[in-house]
């Protein structure tokens, strides 16, 4: 475990916490007759969270962590896997089933079809993999799918006029997690013998590049001290 890897995992964890915090805030706002301004913003506007992206992440973790009960790596590894599995499925559950959270979800804007991402990723995993076994193909599929799973969220951000702070932080933290993983691979390549993983690296690089545009607008909004807004 190196510092880049740990920092990457921590920003990933923080992104999940930001999303759970947002859901918690939406929930707790509901019963108030005179909501605070944050509640007002969260309840009156759409949450800006893409259910499509969250469902894809749930699928990513479910297919990647099939080894959770068969191969033991470390306590840290197992706990983190359980957190990512549990949080991704509960976020999906909240957006689909929770009375109040569901109301803040803007279904009409979040129109991307899972099918267009899942099918090509599955085909690619069947063709390009390190070993043609059930577990290995699904593991490779999860890498390909994770690379593109953010697309519905990025498209939704572009469509939504007001990106509230938490949604912006969420996407930023996810992007930071990916960038840190690249540094982790570079570090491991130079410090560990035979550490070469083209499939992981290329899909990870593609994933990080998808955030480039968002990062550009995120940092310029910070620099100019204005609200984050993506161009149409």
């Amino acid at each position: 475990m190196n510092i880049f890897r740990l920092a990457g995992d921590m920003t990933h964890l923080m992104s999940v916490l930001v999303l759970l915090l947002k859901i918690h805030t939406i929930k707790s706002c509901a019963g108030k007759s005179y909501p605070c301004s944050l509640c007002f913003i969260l309840l009156e506007s759409s949450s800006g969270i893409s259910l499509k992206t969250q469902e894809l992440y749930a699928l990513v973790f479910a297919t990647r962590y099939l080894d959770i009960f068969t191969d033991f790596i470390s306590v840290y590894n197992t706990i983190m896997k359980l957190i990512f599995l549990g949080s991704s499925f509960s976020i999906v559950w909240y957006i689909r089933r929770h009375k109040i959270v569901r109301r803040s979800y803007d279904k009409d804007q979040d129109t991307f079809r899972h099918f267009f991402l899942v099918l090509p990723c599955l085909l690619l995993a069947l063709i390009i993999n390190e070993k043609f076994t059930f577990k290995e193909v699904l593991w490779t599929f999860s890498l390909y799918l994770e690379a593109v799973a953010i697309l519905p969220q990025l498209i939704l951000l572009q469509r939504t006029r007001n990106i509230d702070n938490l949604t912006g932080q969420y996407v930023f933290l996810l992007g930071a997690y990916r960038a840190l993983y690249i540094l982790n691979w570079i570090y491991r390549y130079f410090t560990e013998p035979h550490y070469v993983h083209w499939i992981t690296w290329i899909s990870g690089l593609v994933q990080t590049l998808l955030y480039a545009d968002f990062f550009y607008y995120y940092f310029s909004s910070l620099k100019n001290n204005v609200k984050l807004k993506l161009p149409a």
Partner: peptide, 10 residues
């Protein structure tokens, strides 16, 4: 597995 060492990543 061929990718055993990368499997310790999340």
């Amino acid at each position: 597995s061929a990718s055993a060492d990368v499997k310790d990543e999340l």
